[in-house]
């Protein structure tokens, strides 16, 4: 499989979330597409920003099946900026009602994915990070 260079994707899910089939599918799909993928289960949103620094991630994918994005996403976005990672592309996936997508994008989320995602679009979006 051709390597996508330095494009490293950090996938995260909170430790209390029970449904991880989706995020693991994404992990497999991105690995098969040649990206380096790290998956972590976090306790507090602060850990997501810390891990992004440690892993030198270009893309972060946050998975939610239980609706805590309203609490966690603003914290992660603020901390990324504080740590000088404001240009890291952050994606959200999982069980996200369509009516919440605008709010997430206003927080700086690049794209929101849910059940039945077009994986080619996801792969192209992440490839665009390497090109920029």
């Amino acid at each position: 499989m051709k390597s996508q260079g330095r494009t490293k994707v950090l996938l995260v899910k909170h430790w209390m979330e029970c449904h991880d089939r989706g995020v693991k599918s994404v992990a497999t799909i991105l690995r098969d597409a040649g990206f380096e993928v790290v998956y972590i289960v976090y306790m507090r949103p602060e850990e997501v920003a810390t891990s992004a620094v440690q892993e030198d991630a270009s893309v972060i994918g946050m998975s939610f099946s239980t609706g805590a994005y309203d609490d966690h996403v603003p914290v992660v976005m603020r901390l990324l900026k504080e740590k000088g990672l404001g240009n890291v592309m952050v994606l959200v996936g999982g069980l996200i009602p369509d009516e919440d997508i605008d709010w997430l994008k206003k927080q700086g989320i690049k794209e929101v994915f849910g059940a039945g995602t077009d994986t080619n679009y996801l792969i192209e979006l992440i490839k665009s990070v390497a090109r920029n």
Binding site: W15, M16, R44
Partner: peptide, 18 residues
């Protein structure tokens, strides 16, 4: 809810959002 599931009380930081 998931906090009650895993022994996290509502007044703990981990429960917030859930």
């Amino acid at each position: 809810d998931v906090p009650t599931h895993f022994g996290v009380d509502p007044d703990e930081p981990d429960a917030q959002g859930y």
